[in-house]
Write a protein that binds this DNA or RNA. Sequence first.
DNA 1: TGCTAAATACCAACCGGTTGGTAATCTAAC
DNA 2: GTTAGATTACCAACCGGTTGGTATTTAGCA
Lengths: 208, 208
Amino acid sequence: MSSHLPAFGKPRRGDARVALLDAALSLVRRQGWSATSVDQLCHAAGVTKGAFFHHFASKEALGVAAAVHWSAVTGALFAAAPYHAPADPLDRIFAYLDFRSELADGPLEEISCFAGTAVQEMFATSDPIRMACAASIAGHAQTLEADFAAALVQHGITCTDARSLALHTQAVLQGGFVLAKALGDAAAARDAVAHLRRYLEMLFAKGT
Amino acid sequence: MSSHLPAFGKPRRGDARVALLDAALSLVRRQGWSATSVDQLCHAAGVTKGAFFHHFASKEALGVAAAVHWSAVTGALFAAAPYHAPADPLDRIFAYLDFRSELADGPLEEISCFAGTAVQEMFATSDPIRMACAASIAGHAQTLEADFAAALVQHGITCTDARSLALHTQAVLQGGFVLAKALGDAAAARDAVAHLRRYLEMLFAKGT
DNA sequence: TGCTAAATACCAACCGGTTGGTAATCTAAC
DNA sequence: GTTAGATTACCAACCGGTTGGTATTTAGCA
């Protein structure tokens, strides 16, 4: 509640942990996990290495905490987003996709997913980080599951299930990020969402 | 012609370059670009660092060459694959998707894409690598474009175009890889392909 | 005072890259 | 068809800088 806003750029005493986690999100999204050094994180957060290892036992431990932090930050963003307004569950799904498409209007470095970026590098070398990223992605997918389930029932669709559709939505978004980064154009991410929207439109129109 | 086969595991003289490129493909796909050191590449290839910098001006230069090598290796794999057999272009697309689904049966480290993995880390820090990866992905997508174009005409579909569909196919595959790595299960990649197949089935059935 | 957050200073290992040299291979003159 | 000479392919040792991580000290709050 009365969370004192960080008055200026300099982090106050007690802010080091969050400053490091925020730095991790932006640095890892820009340049990946392995290329991001502890020194770099400390510099970006405006703290020293002593503070880093006071709050985190290792770089890996920070990675796990950063994935949790990412879930919290994005969770708050999506919870506050206006796409929950429609009464019909399918309309809420479409509103979610429109919202994701709008998010992809920003700079390239802002449209990627911390968890997706980190897990691509670390899936074979750090199980704690892999699991934390999996929980982040699957957790976000789960917020769509109830709407998908309701829409499936409403339209009498049985050829797939809500969990699969929710995960596929995340897969298409992740793939859109990869292509956008490669082609240097966020439009690639929006195109992927547009195809996904058409898929869902046809899938749910079929049963109506 | 009389190219003596490499008698044993030890690379003969002249093999160093290819050995390094092959090592790059497997190491980067497993642990990402930044986590893969030049020493590691040399050890895996069975050569010394002197050989490395004889063939490549820098680690970045090897990255660009590895992306080209990746295109050549996968290009040969897909060119020799049996999915080109069907007479109907749409059937060839479906056969391609089935083939990609089969490929995802192997171990997790074998289902990922070198270009997609590398570009996710390097898109903001190395434009040469970013462009080489983009060329690899877009080049592979282009091999599907003619079939998509023919199928679109055949079914009278105008709401999208062949290039967009070909790129979206790659986006779904890339996203499937990310989810498979996160969840530790290649089935996630196959699920993504299955949803893509259903999308295309409905899209092209509509126009028939 | 007692406890925690953060700063300073430091380390051994490893990073990408360079060095000077050696051995295999190609070329061409004879 | 041999062989001198240029060229390529490769090796071992090394370089300065950076890595993740630690030990010790100082400042702030209750």
